[in-house]
C-alpha cells in the first residue's frame, strides 16, 4: 500500500518526540522518575520495558491525557498538554487494551475515530480491513481481543498522519496478523512517517525499529541504535577443537568458559574477539559456532533486578539468556 510521501517537518533536525526529565507521580507512586526520550522524525522507535515500567504512562503524557509533574515534553514541536487538539490531528494512537463501544460495530468505531481525527481514506480503510481479515459489521462486544486491536489499528493506519503512537499494538494478534502489521509499519516508514512502538515482542522490535529505548522503573536506562547496542554485548562461541584449550578464562574479555572433552563454550566481548580467535586457532579448530547477541540479552540485562548489583549480576543475566535459547 502506498502512503503519500512525507518530508520531515521544519528542516529535519527536530525530534518528533523530545522528552527531558519527565516526572509523573500518582499519590505515593513515582511512575516516571526523570525520563528522557528522543525520537527523530521519520524513524521507527522501539519503546521496551517490563510491565509497569511506565511505558503507557509516558504515552499518556505524550497524548496530553496525563499532565506532567515536572520535565519538558515536546511532541511534533508542540506542547502535548496545551496544544493537544492541534497535535492529535497529526497523530494516531492505538492503545494496548482496546475497549470498543459495545453497541457500535467495528466499522462504526473506525469511522468515528478517524472522522474525529479529520477523516480517512475509504479505499485504504477497505484494503486494511481485508489485509487484517476484519469483519467491520460485528458489534464491538462480540470481537475478541485481537479483533478489537485490529479495529484500532485499521483506524490508525487508514489516517494520513505524521506520527503513530502504538502501545503494544499486537499483543492479541496471531503470527499471520503480526506479519501483516509489520508490512504495514514498513510502508508507513517508507512514507517518511514517525512511529513510536511500545512492545514486548523482541522479534518485532528487531525487525522494525531503527532505534530502541529501554525503560525500567520510570527511567530510560539505555537508548540507541540496535546494532550499536549489540556491539557492546558479547558473542557466544562454541568450538570443537583437536587439542584441549587452556588459559582461555584468563584472557581479557572472556566469560563463562566451559570445556567438555573437545568442546569449548564461552562468551566474549566484541572488542576482544580477534585475540580470542587467534588464541583458539593453534588448537586445531574443527568447527566454530558464533551466536550474535540477541535482544533477549539486552532485555534481561535491564529487566533483571541484578542490574544494580554490578558485573556479577550481569554474568548471571547473560547465562540465563543462553539457557533460555
Amino acid at each position: 500500500m502506498r502512503y503519500p510521501q512525507r518530508s520531515p517537518q521544519n528542516g529535519s533536525v527536530n525530534n518528533a518526540i523530545d522528552v527531558v526529565g519527565l516526572v509523573k507521580t500518582f499519590g505515593q507512586t513515582r511512575a516516571l522518575d526523570g525520563l528522557n526520550l528522543q525520537v527523530k522524525a521519520g524513524e521507527v522507535h522501539g519503546f521496551l520495558g517490563p510491565n509497569g515500567a511506565g511505558k503507557s504512562t509516558t504515552i499518556r503524557v505524550l497524548l496530553g491525557l496525563l499532565r506532567a509533574d515536572a520535565g519538558q515534553v515536546r511532541l511534533l514541536d508542540g506542547d502535548p498538554w496545551s496544544d493537544a487538539v492541534a497535535l492529535h490531528r497529526r497523530l494516531a494512537y492505538v492503545p494496548g487494551d482496546v475497549s470498543l463501544w459495545p453497541n457500535l460495530t467495528g466499522g462504526e468505531a473506525i469511522d468515528l475515530l478517524a472522522r474525529l481525527r479529520g477523516g480517512l481514506d475509504p479505499a485504504k480503510r477497505e484494503t486494511l480491513c481485508e489485509r487484517f481479515d476484519l469483519d467491520p459489521s460485528k458489534k464491538g462486544r462480540t470481537y475478541s481481543k485481537g479483533n478489537r486491536q485490529k479495529v484500532a489499528l485499521v483506524a490508525a493506519l487508514a489516517s494520513d498522519v505524521e506520527l503513530l503512537i502504538l502501545d503494544e499494538p499486537t499483543a492479541g494478534l496471531d503470527p499471520l496478523m503480526e506479519a501483516v502489521f509489520q508490512d504495514c509499519i514498513r510502508e508507513v516508514k517508507e512514507a517518511g512517517r514517525t512511529v513510536l512502538l511500545s512492545s514486548h515482542i523482541l522479534g518485532q522490535v528487531e525487525k522494525l525499529c531503527d532505534k530502541v529505548s529501554i525503560i525500567r522503573q520510570g527511567v530510560v536506562v539505555e537508548s540507541g541504535v540496535l546494532s550499536q547496542m549489540r556491539h557492546l554485548r558479547r558473542t557466544t562461541i562454541e568450538a570443537e577443537v583437536e587439542r584441549p584449550v587452556t588459559g582461555l578464562s584468563e584472557l581479557a574479555g572472556v566469560h563463562d568458559a566451559h570445556t567438555e572433552n573437545s568442546l569449548v563454550r564461552f562468551s566474549v566481548d566484541g572488542e576482544h574477539m580477534d585475540k580470542v580467535i587467534a588464541w583458539l586457532a593453534p588448537h586445531g579448530v574443527r568447527s566454530l559456532i558464533s551466536q550474535p547477541p540477541a535482544l533477549e540479552e539486552l532485555f534481561l540485562r535491564h529487566y533483571g533486578d541484578e542490574l544494580a548489583t554490578g558485573s556479577d549480576g550481569q554474568r548471571v543475566a547473560s547465562g540465563d539468556a543462553g539457557a533460555a535459547r
Binding site: 499518556r60 497524548l63 496530553g64 491525557l65 493537544a84 487538539v85 492541534a86 492529535h88 490531528r89 497523530l91 494516531a92 494512537y93 492503545p95 487494551d97 482496546v98 475497549s99 470498543l100 463501544w101 475515530l113 478517524a114 474525529l116 481525527r117 479529520g118 484500532a152 503512537i165
Partner: peptide, 10 residues
C-alpha cells in the same frame, strides 16, 4: 478506557 482514544484524536 473508551474516552482515551477519542481524546487522542482532534
Amino acid at each position: 478506557g473508551r474516552v482515551e482514544p477519542l481524546l487522542a484524536t482532534g
